[in-house]
Design a binder for these strands. Structure first.
Length: 562
RNA sequence: UGGCCCCUCGUCCAACGGCAGGACAUCAGACUUUGGAUCUGAGAAUGGUGGUUCGAAUCCACCGGGGCCAACCA
């Protein structure tokens, strides 16, 4: 029995070739290198799946390395969140490492560079350095300190490390080429002085390496074989290669770039996500509208769905955004096979069954799963002469294709009886407040002995038995597909969706869910997938988050005809 | 504007000089005690112009479009 060869993406092809040829002389080793300055989001999930997946597939290992080189923006809180989210996603790392643990080794490499005339201490101001770097069309000009002697550079570097100078007094720069067409190569800054407390190294250092210096060298120190990153680091590869070569690493890691994951109607820039949190546009990093893994999780999405989505999007080199529908499909596809169906009425409309025996209550057996989901189980749902149905399921003057309840129409109550609407009761302002209906006792369970059919089946709850609950109906956070590219510098906050959260305080859910633990997932039949809020939902204060609505061809029909 | 990268159905990804395929989306139908799910079918693409070649989505050139780079961020 042979399996069709899985189609490899361009990165896996490369890894497979290197693995087969033994190019590195060591096992495949990848790494996931987050900076602990924010919560991981759906874009990180793609990178995590790639790096951890490749290590697993090729019998290699994967390092979780925090690129913690900027103490002023980083926090231990974020490293905990990152670790938690990776585990939640279903991956585990072989080694937990920190770039800050390499500070001593990195510094020795810097000293070596200085000794060989490949780096120098620059004492120009930040503004001067920027100005002297030139522009993309004009070459830069050398700093007046560029030709300091090795001895002077060494002395200065050592004193920088000892803390003799204030922030910004000096930096260490690589000595490459101020006229280089790649701006990254115009004598990049390697170290800056920061008298700041590091959450890991305390006050041991006041000299911190920059990304370009720390990242590639950290990869090389660890023996990484394949260093995978996103497209915007393409230009940085040149300094990466320059540094590992200068540092003398044999069989150094190879950097390969791929397009990051971007999703319609959301943003994945940590800067923007931080702003949403800090400015209070969302309730926090784990707000269910956020594309963070913690937000997605609280929204009710499973790790399996996130992985399926990340894998489904693919790995390529062309910058791309994925449609929202692809995301919703991954979420529904997973939940469909996983969660029990229960009944919940969003906007209750009272229905009185005029011919139902007064005071009678029946317990109707209702399966948790439909015929096409291979799971079993059922519960009893109370039925009585006073019910609630959803307001959307009744129209006084229905259009032709409306299959639900209307005056004189008969519908099936899911798992219950056929009912026919006889009378519509309105209040003083003409608003429908109650329906008087007749039920057919012969249709118990939902089938008519005489074989007659009904067009529609609607959900319902027994008024006396239903539990009150709050529904949080989440929708996309932005009103436009690409909040990252707005006309003439318009701020992304201006396209926030004001209706991204609708709180429905008075919904009615069947009593069977009353004691389920917080975090339980359901499909509310004909409405959508919901999860009881892990933080706010309690037995007598039920709160449900809408993970995603059901596909709705009636909605489609309505918009088509209007 | 200098350098680099990218461009295949509406969207995302394949096809690696030899029949342009899959997924999502869309449309039509079947089935249905969820207007859900499932099943069947359909429509839908190689940015443009030249060149190389028996043969080009694939190689080359130019044009067009998009992206990244001028933090002591990553």
């Amino acid at each position: 029995m042979t399996h069709p060869a899985p189609r490899l993406d361009f990165i896996r092809e490369k890894v497979a070739a290197d693995h087969a040829s033994g190019r590195f002389g060591r096992a495949i080793m990848t790494r996931f290198p987050p900076e602990p300055n924010g919560f991981p989001h759906i874009g990180h999930a793609k990178s995590i799946c790639l790096n951890f997946g490749i290590a697993r597939e090729f019998g290699g290992t994967v390092n979780l390395r925090f690129d913690d080189t900027n103490p002023t923006t980083e926090d231990i809180r974020y490293v905990e969140a990152i670790k938690h989210d990776i585990e939640w996603l279903g991956f585990r790392w072989d080694r937990e490492l920190y770039a800050s643990d390499y500070f001593e080794q990195l510094f020795e490499i810097a000293v070596g560079l200085v000794e060989r005339g490949k780096a120098y201490v620059d004492s120009e101001t930040e503004a001067e350095i920027r100005e002297h770097r030139g522009t993309v069309t004009t070459p830069g000009t050398p700093s007046r300190h560029r030709d300091r002697s090795v001895a002077e550079n060494l002395d200065l570097l050592e004193r920088m490390k000892r803390g003799e100078f204030p922030d910004g007094a000096h930096v260490l720069r690589a000595k490459i080429d101020l006229a280089h067409p790649n701006m990254i190569m115009r004598d990049p800054v390697l170290y800056r002085i920061r008298h700041a407390h590091h959450y890991r190294r305390g006050d041991a250092w006041c000299l911190y390496p920059l990304y370009d210096f720390a990242h590639g060298l950290s990869d090389a120190i660890e023996g990484i074989t394949h260093s995978l990153c996103t497209l915007e680091f393409k230009d940085n590869r040149e300094i990466y290669d320059w540094l590992v070569r200068e540092a003398g690493f044999a069989a150094p890691p190879e950097q390969t770039e791929f397009a990051r994951l971007e999703l319609d109607f959301t943003v994945v820039s940590k800067r923007k996500l931080l702003r949403l949190v800090n400015d209070g546009h969302v309730a926090g990093w784990d707000d269910p509208r956020m594309p963070t893994l913690s937000g997605i999780r609280r929204r009710g999405v499973t790790a399996e769905a996130v992985r399926a989505f990340a894998e489904g999007v693919g790995v390529a080199r062309s910058p791309a955004r994925t449609e929202w529908a692809a995301w919703e499909h991954a979420v529904r596809d997973d939940l469909n096979m996983r969660v029990p169906r229960v009944l919940c009425v969003v906007n209750p409309l009272k229905v009185v069954l005029t011919n139902y025996p007064a005071g009678q209550v029946e317990q109707l057996e209702a399966p948790y799963y439909p015929h096409d989901v291979p799971k079993t189980g059922s519960r009893l749902v109370p039925f009585s002469g006073e019910l609630y149905i959803d307001r959307d399921d009744f129209m006084e003057d229905p259009p032709k294709k409306f299959f639900r309840l209307a005056p004189g129409r008969e519908v099936r109550l899911r798992y219950g009886y056929f009912i026919t609407c006889d009378e519509v009761i309105k209040n003083g302002s003409g608003e429908v407040v109650e329906l008087r209906c007749r039920y057919d006792p012969a249709t118990r369970g939902g089938n008519a002995p005489d074989g007659r059919k009904v067009q529609g089946t609607i959900h319902w709850v027994s008024a006396a038995h239903a539990l009150d609950c709050e529904l949080r109906l989440y929708d996309r956070l932005f009103t436009v597909a690409d909040p990252d590219s707005l006309p003439d510098g318009q701020d992304f906050l201006s396209v926030l969706n004001p209706n991204s959260l609708e709180v429905v305080p008075g919904a009615k859910v069947e009593p069977s869910v009353g004691n389920d633990p917080a975090g339980s997932r359901y499909q509310f039949e004909r409405v959508g997938y919901f999860v009881s809020d892990p933080l706010d939902s309690r037995p007598n204060v039920l709160v449900f988050n809408r993970t995603v609505g059901l596909r709705d061809s009636w909605q489609k029909e309505k918009t088509r005809s209007s």
